[in-house]
């Protein structure tokens, strides 16, 4: 399975990749995107099976990326990994079609819980 990780912080992308591995999701292909616009383009070119995206990013935010994906007919499974886990953000994410929202800081248990039904 191919997982696209979108975050403007390279460090955070590495932490997400590391946490995926620690949570036991270690034999998946990883593609990285550095903002929402990059993620949108790479969903088209890389055809990932899952997108894990930050919320606040330059160029295009995560929610704008998700909205653009859904309005272009893409139904790629999409989850947020963001430092803003308020009920309001969770509602916005769910309304836009996100499967889950993982709030930072997270650990491998948080990842297992959110991803066990999504990643085979």
């Amino acid at each position: 399975m191919k997982i696209l990780i979108a975050d403007d912080s390279r460090v955070m992308r590495q932490i997400v990749i590391r946490t995926l591995r620690q949570a036991g999701f270690d034999d998946h292909e990883i593609v990285e995107a550095e903002d929402g616009a990059d993620a949108l383009a790479k969903v088209g070119s890389e055809k990932p099976d899952l997108v894990l995206s930050d919320w606040n990013m330059p160029n295009m935010t995560g929610i704008e990326c998700l909205q653009a994906l859904r309005s272009s007919g893409s139904s790629v499974p999409f989850g947020f990994v963001t430092s803003e886990g308020s009920p309001e953000m969770r509602e916005k994410a769910a309304n836009a079609g996100a499967l889950f929202l993982i709030a930072k800081p997270f650990n491998e248990d948080t990842f297992q819980e959110a991803l066990s039904g999504v990643i085979a």
Partner: peptide, 29 residues
């Protein structure tokens, strides 16, 4: 690298401080 990592710590701490405040707020990069 330092700007990225140290900035990301501020982002996570700041995002959670924001969540602890009443009402709805915006957060910068």
């Amino acid at each position: 690298d330092v700007a990225d990592a140290f900035g990301e710590i501020a982002n996570v701490v700041g995002g959670n401080v924001k969540a602890a405040l009443p009402g709805s707020s915006g957060l910068s990069l």
